[in-house]
């Protein structure tokens, strides 16, 4: 494995996570529970798609075929996407959307904090920009998890069920393979266990304040990182890819 190959895998995973969650949140544009929250979720969606633009652009330069970010975003097959299963899960009700976002944000903040000091300058600069956005995303999703958990009996019950359902997908965020190991040895990325510690700390604090608890079972779903997706992914891609598939090379 070369450095470029390892970096491509790593950057593509980050980019696909941003792209797919951005796409999911964009479905809520005009459908948010209140006007203010509609705008907040759409802002986050745009932040994520912006991150995907930068990450996939960089990824495209790391492969011999030199692909554009549009090619990577719109013209791959389902099994070629390497996002975690968590981000492709449907929006569900507002509590589901918020819990999915929180589990993700709590991971991405420490990840970007570490990556901004990467020896790979391009990756470091993308991380530095994304970190500012991610800090706000985490603040927003944490606030809502606490409000819903420590809210009414109904909202607490619902957000607890959201956690039980989505927690099974959370551990895939910490997936690693030989690409990660290679980059770690090269000093390009740091030890993932540090990020896991911070994720544990953040989620524990917020769930305590929200008066909800981790599910007792320890089920773990994974597969997205190696291209094995849930049944929701095909529908998402049908929306995402429609324009480029129907009108190839179309530009705005």
């Amino acid at each position: 494995m070369t450095k470029k190959e390892a970096l491509y895998n790593f950057v593509l995973r980050l980019g696909d996570d941003s792209l797919v969650l951005g796409q999911r949140l964009s479905e809520l544009c005009g459908h948010g529970p209140i006007l203010e929250e509609d705008i907040a979720l759409t802002n986050i969606s745009l932040d994520l798609i912006g991150q995907a633009t930068l990450l996939l652009e960089y990824a495209g330069t790391l492969i011999p075929e030199n692909k554009s970010n549009d090619e990577l975003a719109f013209l791959r097959l389902e099994k070629e996407y390497v996002n975690v299963l968590l981000v492709e899960q449907p929006n569900g009700h507002f509590g589901d959307t918020i819990m999915r976002q929180f589990l993700f944000d709590a991971f991405r903040k420490p990840l970007f904090e570490a990556l901004q000091f990467s020896t790979d300058e391009k990756l470091a600069s993308i991380a530095e920009k994304a970190l500012k956005e991610t800090k706000y995303h985490l603040k927003h999703s944490s606030e809502w998890v606490i409000r819903l958990g420590d809210g009414t009996e109904e909202s607490r019950t619902k957000i607890q069920v959201s956690l039980n359902t989505l927690y099974r997908y959370a551990h895939e965020l910490f997936f690693t393979d030989e690409s990660d190991e290679f980059l770690r040895q090269e000093g390009i990325i740091s030890e993932l266990s540090v990020i896991k510690e911070q994720w544990d700390k953040t989620t524990k604090e917020v769930f305590n304040r929200a008066t909800i608890s981790l599910p007792e079972n320890n089920w773990k779903f994974e597969g997205g990182r190696v291209g094995r997706h849930s049944e929701h992914m095909g529908f998402l891609l049908a929306d995402l890819q429609y324009m480029q598939r129907t009108y190839p090379n179309m530009e705005w």
């Binding site: 209140i34 006007l35 203010e36 929250e37 705008i39 907040a40 802002n43 706000y136 603040k139 927003h140 606030e143 409000r147």
Partner: peptide, 20 residues
Amino acid sequence: SLRASDSVMALDNARDVYTR
């Protein structure tokens, strides 16, 4: 103006609605 349940949420909403 905007709607929010308390001042913390009002500040967050103001950020999203009026400073984007």
